[in-house]
Nucleic acid binder design. Structure first.
Lengths: 190, 190
DNA sequence: GCAATAACGCAGTGATCAATGCCATAATGG
DNA sequence: CCATTATGGCATTGATCACTGCGTTATTGC
């Protein structure tokens, strides 16, 4: 966050090369430290030590904790949920909301979201939700391709996505299936 | 967060005594540092220096950055908005949502929310919204006292409060009056 | 295979942080 | 007004952090 920008995170390496292995180890270590209730400081030297990597490497590739968390969140929250295809908009939304609730309820995803919001600023926060918004958009577009009317993307974000994140982050209530169904019912009256 | 617990934050002092002055100075310094785009580390020594107070004092009264932020957020988000009384539920909700949008849009409240979520954990996050939920509850209860039907508190939280916080934290979109009115209209059909 | 380039490991440096013991000062209660 | 308690200031200490040259190892392109 304070450094100009890493020379370019080296994305051209083969999947299994040293670079990819280091990246995976560091990302895993970061999530483990966040999940650990041991209140470890989550600094770069600590993450590096846990990953079995030298702190220098982390400083050079990520630059700061904020950028590291943003990167970890991007990976963690990309592809973890597949867009369902149940045949109906209601089915898709209910299924998707339920999957997202399960994902957000995972004990090590909430600390990651919280920490990323705190240290990653605007970039970090959007890394936690960008793919979710796009997936919601895809669900609505497919329904429109079927020739049906749909609520706007914004409405679905406000009525389904926002409450899920809000409840996860700000409360200690469970994200129950009943409740997620209720959320969906508010955008699909009948 | 790691210390047992401060001996008790000294709440019995007169408003204007040394204790209260120090508390105010530290809280103001914390918010100023968060608002500053200078990317200062927001550590206890830095906060203390800016407040013209010795770091020792901050360590003893708050113990950690997380607890300090939680305390600052509690103060900052308590009493900043008064529950409106327009005579109608729709008026109250629209007014309240608009006030909250203005408050969340304040350039130095968003960094505080983000940082508190990140460093304050469950306690910190709820400090940002507790009073808001209670105020919403008060609005609904007054409408019920008028003998009218209302949506549930949970529904209003999901449909109005959650999108406001979600948009503020995760996106860079403005919290426009038009949009907040739309949110209210979703819980008050007609 | 063999150069060229990029990524990583190593050791070390200055700066900053968290934490503590001791004393000064202000606030409470009789 | 005085004693008791609590709160804040000061100096210091050990630990940790962010960061940087330099050499080594892996990866890429020819």
């Amino acid at each position: 966050m304070s450094t100009p920008a890493p020379p370019s995170p080296h994305v051209g390496s083969r999947p299994g090369g040293r670079s990819a292995r280091v990246r995976a180890a560091v990302q895993r270590a970061t999530q483990e430290l966040l999940a650990d209730e041991t209140n470890e400081p989550l600094t770069i030297p600590v993450v590096a030590a846990r990953a079995g990597v030298h702190a220098t490497t982390v400083y050079r590739r990520w630059g700061s904790i904020g950028e590291l968390l943003t990167d970890v969140a991007s990976s963690r929250f990309s592809g973890a949920i597949v867009v369902p295809d149940t045949g109906s908009l209601r089915g898709d939304l209910e299924r998707y909301a339920s999957d997202l609730a399960k994902d957000l309820g995972d004990p090590d995803s909430l600390p990651l979201v919280r920490a990323t919001i705190g240290a990653g600023g605007e970039q970090g926060a959007s890394a936690c939700t960008r793919e979710r918004q796009q997936q919601l958009e895809a669900i609505l577009e497919r329904e429109q391709a079927r020739g049906n009317q749909t609520p706007t993307v914004q409405h679905v974000i406000d009525a389904v996505l926002a409450p899920l994140y809000y409840r996860a982050i700000f409360t200690d209530k469970a994200l129950t299936p009943d409740w997620t169904r209720t959320l969906v019912s508010h955008v699909l009256p009948d």
